[in-house]
Each structure stands twice: as C-alpha cells, then as structure tokens.
Computed example of a mutant assay.
Amino acid sequence: MTAAQVTRRLAAPRLRPDWAWQLHQGSAVVYVIWFAVAVPLAIVGLLLEPRWVGWFVLAWFLVLVGFTVALRIGDGRRKQSWADTAHQLGWRLSASGEELRDRWPFPPFDVDPGAAIVDVTTGRHRGREFWTGRFRHKVGRRELGFDFLDLQVDRPLPPLQVLPAGLSPVAAASLLPLPLAIDGLPAQYRLFNGREDHAMAILHPRAVEALADVPPFGFSCEGRRFVAILPAYRDATTALAQLDVACDLLDLIPEQVWRAGEQWAANQQQS
C-alpha cells in the first residue's frame, strides 16, 4: 500500500476529540458515567426485586470491563496497522520525541511545560520531510491530547492557528476564537491566532475542496513551522489521507501568504 492509494471521502469521528481522548485514556469521566448509571440501576433493582440488585450492578460492571478491553484491543490494532504501514513506506518509528518541542515555540505546544510527545513517526512524503505523533498536555485540569503532523516548509509563514470547532477543547491557542464563514468545509472552522485575511486566503475554494474529503483537522503555523492538528485515535487509512491533504494545503497556499510570512520573519529579526 502507498499513500497515493488511500481512498478519500472518509467519515468523521463520531465523538468529539476531547471526549474520545478521555474515554480511550480511561479517565475519571468514564467512572463518573459508570456510577451515574449504576446508582439509578441499583435503585430500580431495589424497587423491583432487591435480590437482583447485586446482579444488576455486576452486569453493569462487566459492561465497563468489556468496554475498556474493547478500546484497548482497538487501540492496539490501530497502532500495529500504522506501524506496518510506516515500515512498508520506509518511515521511522520512535517511542518519544521530546526534542521536537523546541521546534514549536507557539501555542498550543508551548503552554504546558509538562507536555509529552509520544509515538513519533518520521519520514518523507511527496518531497517533504515530516514528523507525526501524539501530543499530550494539560488543558485546565484535564489531561488531553491530539495527533500532530509537522510538515517541512521552505519559506516562513505568518503566525496562524485555524481549528475545526471540535478540536478547540484539546488544542486551542486562545479562548476567544473568531468564526470563519467558509462554505463547503465539513465542520465549522475558527481562527484562534493570527489574522483573518491570512486564514481566509489559505482556505480558498481549492483548499476547502481538499479538506472536505477527510475528517476535519486544523493547523498552527509560525515561521518555518507548519503543524497540522488532528484528532487522536485515527486508523492508518485516515492518517494517510490527512497527510496527503495537509500536503495539498501547503501546496495551495497563495503567494500573498508566503510574502506575509517573509515580512513577519524579517520584522522578528529586526526586533
């Protein structure tokens, strides 16, 4: 299998990225949901047949165990599928990539000093070097995370962060986003950092057409760094399709945005 053979028009995730992350990580919210159902279940059991209360609670506990095991098996299969794909394409895998944090001195990567970078894959695709993996950090009091895709760029870009609304809880650079009115996108996109005219220039009709083919993802860029921000727990097919579309997005960036990035970089050097 090659990246070019990936089928487009992939379905979007059913759960919001922050909820999916917490479910897969087995965070406290899973047990809160379990108790929220177990307590009424026990009350109903007491009202109907007290002898069955223990069986009701045990059955619900087994549902929790089965759900957790199913998630772990699914995660393991996704990880193995990606490893097989990466080896087939000649890409390199590593367990962590803490050295990558120095590449991204901008939100959301520089907010939590205790953030971790794991499951890193590096390689080349369509002539660009890339680094992809999982970014774990603390957002408020919650431990959340997302997948990242850092693509090589040869010219600087202006500071910008554009995300679909669903990804904002896990990776937003600010709390006051500006909605972007763009037809054809698979989700509502918002501007969290940078200028609206730059975002609108990047999300022109051809770019929107490419983004519409895959589950929604966003990006942060600044200088010679362009990082796609993606929901975690994607299968290999979705990851390859989004890699292709992220490359398309870079290839389609208008010249005016590149010139704005060069001007921004020049101003940074002078200041």
Rank of each mutant, 00 (worst) to 15 (best):
G218Q: 01
G74P: 10
L211T: 08
I182S: 08
L252R: 12
P17V: 00
I229W: 05
R141P: 01
W258N: 02
L151T: 01
S271L: 12
L15W: 10
R190S: 13
V32H: 02
L176H: 14
F130Q: 11
A42M: 02
V39S: 06
A181D: 15
I117Q: 06
T238H: 04
F146I: 05
P169E: 11
W55M: 12
R8N: 07
P156C: 09
R92T: 11
T68N: 09
P159I: 06
V69A: 14
L191Y: 01
A199M: 10
G90F: 13
D110K: 08
L249N: 05
V227K: 01
V44L: 11
L243K: 09
L62G: 02
P40E: 12
A42Y: 04
A212Q: 09
H137F: 08
G223D: 03
P254R: 08
V214N: 08
A241E: 00
R234N: 15
E143W: 06
L64T: 10
W91S: 12
P215Y: 03
A12L: 01
G223L: 08
A4F: 08
L23Q: 09
T132M: 15
V214F: 10
L10W: 04
L191S: 00
F226D: 07
T2M: 09
P205I: 07
A173N: 03
R134H: 04
P40D: 12
L249F: 11
L23N: 04
A11K: 13
Q268T: 13
A173F: 03
A36I: 07
R72D: 07
W52Q: 02
F106I: 10
G261E: 07
Y31Q: 13
P186Q: 01
G114Q: 13
R259Q: 15
Q263A: 15
Q263K: 11
Y233E: 03
L10Y: 04
G194F: 01
Y189I: 07
S174V: 11
V170L: 02
P169H: 05
L160W: 08
L176R: 14
A70C: 10
R101M: 15
A236W: 04
L167W: 00
S174I: 10
